[in-house]
Design a protein around this nucleic acid. Structure first.
Length: 554
RNA sequence: GCGCCUGUAGCUCAGUCGGAUAGAGUACCCGCCUUCUAAGCGGGUUGUCGCAGGUUCGAUUCCUGCCAGGCGCGCCA
């Protein structure tokens, strides 16, 4: 894949190893060498600062160390120039035609280009959204609906075996209150104190009654659960429909009730008890999470014998691990960050490594602007914005892309008015436009009956600076995907795509791709068309990782 | 009080395991479509990287303290 980079890294490492065994440098060989792409193109295609890092232990100045490494670094025909710059950076310039070989690598890999094996064999449970089935999904869920889905795709691309899971909080007081609210609405009675308000409750009531008119005349003690269950079913189905429309799909919808029905909660408590972190006090059963850094111990079973919400969470974690997942990723809103400590402590209590087996991502809240004003979200005032409404206003691609584009630990502001615009203020269009533009060029090539085939590819044709720049950018894609997966940051893909799109537009402006007029297609035209095709593949693959479409025309 | 997140250009934000002259978009000014999608390209202007110390060849990045903003700290769910 990016084998050139890997080869270079290996060659550097070998060169350092030889210098050390010669005694030219003292110290240890670093466990890994990182090549970076310099911001400034005068610094070559790749650069490394190993010489600076080794200088101290070697007792020599960094430029000397760099020279020693270079002396050992011979016989790589893919390199056209090696320079020592500044305090001791080694700058590497690749042989251009060798760099152009990337095109055949991309075209042969196709949809798989960018995929890697860093997480091969790792089973990951990715849990996100996990809303109560007591109302529509709103803005607070929307960020995760987009980012969680993209992260799932990115982790899969890194080779992980990913299961996306939605935990349905379908148990407890809130469900009863929800049922009672819908029931009251159906019967024309007042909504209970602390009950659920809003138009959607009346709508649900109407749907429930329409689906089963006899429900109203049930005796009271049968009517109450009947309303709760019917409303639950309708609301859950609605959430599933909205997410499906948003392009976010789950492998498992996991019911909290099912944990209790199958005795998993008791099982979880017993398992923790065998690990020695459970104790009884004041009639309640506790988990000593303070053994592992939590700020207070947590109750598993209340003094009245019933289970706490925390006990469900604990049991659910244990259940996931027993189902064979190596890593459990939780994506929570900032208003739940207080749970991180106890979740990690729970994992530790279960005998797991909280640094590896569990990973909690905290997403800061999203603010929304419309008409130049912040929309204050308030259930009481009826100004909640649902995921569905957001999509209606902006479209799936713009909403998803914008939500994914920022790291989740920064609070973000979504400006609805900007998202509605089809301009460059809306970066999704910038990227999509590049894809559509390439597609148009390739369409025209097909009409001219130019055969765009690797057989006719002469890599030495690509000598223009713009071509070189574009090739370099394409070569970065696999590393971007790998780091997005490793750091759980899908926004890196989006930023990369914007960068790549910009590089392509620059190439397009300066390099004519198709023959003009009656001109025949030359090897240069073919090579450029193949470069375009490669770029199209990478943009499409990147957008796919975000769940955003790659349009053929715009 | 304790804990988590944030503070980078007028605005919205990137910034790879600590690297070279801190970057995009937007806004503002100036150029570029008698041949491939101008939703584009090129050029110009914009910085106390919140403040103060520390670690080192080197800090926007790591550590400590402080300032400002957001959020959270139930035998609730």
């Amino acid at each position: 894949m990016s084998s050139q980079v890997e080869q270079l890294e290996a060659a550097l490492k070998a060169a350092i190893g030889r210098a050390i065994s010669n005694g030219e440098i003292s110290g240890q060989s670093p466990h890994s060498i990182t090549l970076e792409r310099p911001k400034n193109r005068d610094h070559g295609d790749y650069a490394t600062s190993v010489a600076l890092q080794l200088a101290k232990a070697a007792g020599k100045n960094p430029r000397e160390v760099a020279q020693i490494i270079l002396n050992q670094l011979k016989g790589l025909d893919s390199i056209s120039a090696l320079d020592i710059a500044g305090p001791g950076f080694i700058n590497i310039t690749l042989n251009r035609s060798s760099q152009a070989e990337l095109i055949s690598i991309i075209l042969k890999a196709g949809k798989d280009f960018g995929h890697g094996s860093a997480l091969a064999g790792v089973r990951i449970n990715l849990e996100f959204i996990s809303a109560n089935p007591t109302g529509p999904l709103h803005l607070g869920h929307t960020r995760w609906a987009a980012v969680g889905d993209a992260l799932g795709r990115v982790l899969s691309a890194a080779g992980a075996d990913v299961t996306r899971e939605f935990y349905i909080n379908d148990r407890g007081n809130q469900m009863d209150l929800f049922g009672a609210s819908v029931e009251a609405a159906a019967l024309g009675k007042a909504i209970p104190v602390d009950g659920y308000q809003g138009q959607y409750i009346s709508d649900l009531a109407a749907q429930v009654v329409a689906g089963n008119p006899a429900i109203i005349s049930l005796p009271e003690d049968a009517r109450h659960p009947a309303f709760r269950e019917a409303a639950y079913a309708v609301q859950l189905k609605d959430q599933q429909r909205v997410l499906d429309n948003f392009g976010t799909h789950f492998d498992i919808w996991f019911s909290e009730r099912s944990l209790h029905d199958e005795g998993a909660v008791e099982h979880g408590v017993e398992k923790l008890r065998t690990k020695g972190h459970v104790f009884e006090e004041e009639g309640a059963t506790w988990l000593r999470t303070t053994d592992f850094g939590d700020d207070k111990d947590r109750v598993l079973t209340k003094s009245d014998g019933s289970f706490t919400y925390f006990s469900s969470d604990t049991a659910y974690y244990i259940n996931k691990r027993e189902r064979g997942f190596d890593i459990c990723i939780y994506m929570l809103g900032a208003d739940h960050h207080g749970y991180v400590g106890r979740l990690k402590a729970t994992a530790a209590c279960a005998g797991d490594d909280p640094e590896y087996n569990i990973h909690v991502l905290i997403g800061q809240l999203v603010k929304i602007m419309e008409g130049g004003q912040e929309v204050k979200l308030s259930k009481r005032a009826g100004t909640i914005i649902t995921l569905e409404e957001l999509v209606e206003k902006t479209g799936v691609d713009a909403a998803r892309y914008t939500l994914i584009r920022y790291p989740v630990d920064t609070p973000m502001v979504m400006d609805i008015d900007v998202l509605k615009r089809n301009t460059n203020e809306n970066p999704v269009y910038y990227v999509q436009y590049a894809h559509a533009r390439i597609t148009a060029v390739l369409r025209n090539a097909a009409e001219l009956k130019i055969s765009v085939d690797l057989k006719g590819f002469d890599s030495s044709q690509l000598t223009h600076d713009r071509e070189n720049e574009l090739l370099g950018k394409l070569a970065e894609f696999p590393r971007v995907v790998a780091s997005a997966a490793e750091m759980r940051q899908p926004h890196r893909i989006a930023r990369y795509l914007e960068d790549l799109a910009g590089t392509y537009h620059g190439f397009y402006a300066d390099c004519r791709v198709l023959p003009m007029g009656e001109e025949n297609a030359t090897p240069l035209h073919i090579a450029r068309l193949l470069l375009c095709t490669s770029t199209k593949v990478v943009i499409a693959n990147g957008l796919d990782l975000l769940g955003v479409s790659a349009p053929e025309r715009m």
